[in-house]
Amino acid sequence: MAKLAIRTDQLTREFGSLRAVDDLTIEVPEGIIFGFLGPNGAGKTTTINILLGLIEPTKGGAELLGFDVREHSQDIRALSGALLEYPGLYEQLSAADNLEFYGRIWRLTRSEIQVRIKDLLTQIGLWERRGERLAKWSRGMKQKLALARTLIHHPRLIFLDEPTAGLDVMAAATIRDDITNMAREEGVTFFITTHNMTEVEKLCHEVAVIRQGRLVAVGQPEELRRHAGSPRLEIIGKGFNGDVINLLEGLPDVSSVELKEDQLTINFARDIDTAPLVNRMVASGVQIDEVRKGKASLEEVFITLMEEEK
């Protein structure tokens, strides 16, 4: 059985009458990229704050890297890195100074700090700009530097709270590449919160979905898509008349049929052999240009999960 980086047990946090985290039980194996998903106000940031020992749980508990969050939060922080909602960089200092400060915080020796600064800045392509103050840097560059900062002390566990939020497409893609490279090269466990489902599909080995502080789904992205998202057929063509649609809706395994201009989407209740169905449509006079068979995207799964919980 894989060692666990994080294990929470009925973790609960209340702020007055608001229950921000509600009975959350999850297990995160070491060495994976774990996505923690949920809409705004779902309790993602509160969960990270509890796991880092910055706020105490009202009920339940959690262990990180074998340490209890209530008793040993200092040990947990010593072994973790965090990129929270904001980059948390000192703009009046240079890039190298920012990394040096955090290297000193984790008590690296001077030579270790210098080697680490060079390695990390080279890895993210900012070594040549190490002496510049950050005030005029773009948000993407700062975010890359903040990511490097979380790795300065070789942490075993890294928390990233929406690491690509507010970045343009190119910057977000670069950050994702950096996370993938760093996870591969440094072998650390990443705990990432995000709204971006594309990011989750590209990065995460496992995901948990929460809503109003409660866990609504957990598993590998593929598992979630299989369980929560129905198989479907997308057909582009002409001749989707009322008779054809009635025919499809009358079939036992078809759960719904949607027509948008030249595209017909057929959702199935279970995986079936779709070739005979396509043949029947052709026999009914439909002209088919393209057929795509697939499952729901993670985004659709997410929306479904959110609606189910309402």
Binding site: L52, L54, Q74, R77, A78, S80, A82, L83, L84, E85, Y86, P87, G88, L89, Y90, Y102, I105, W106, A146, F159
Partner: peptide, 9 residues
């Protein structure tokens, strides 16, 4: 920058 500083050791 406070949150990041507090999340350190």
């Amino acid at each position: 920058t406070l949150e990041t500083l507090l999340s350190s050791r």
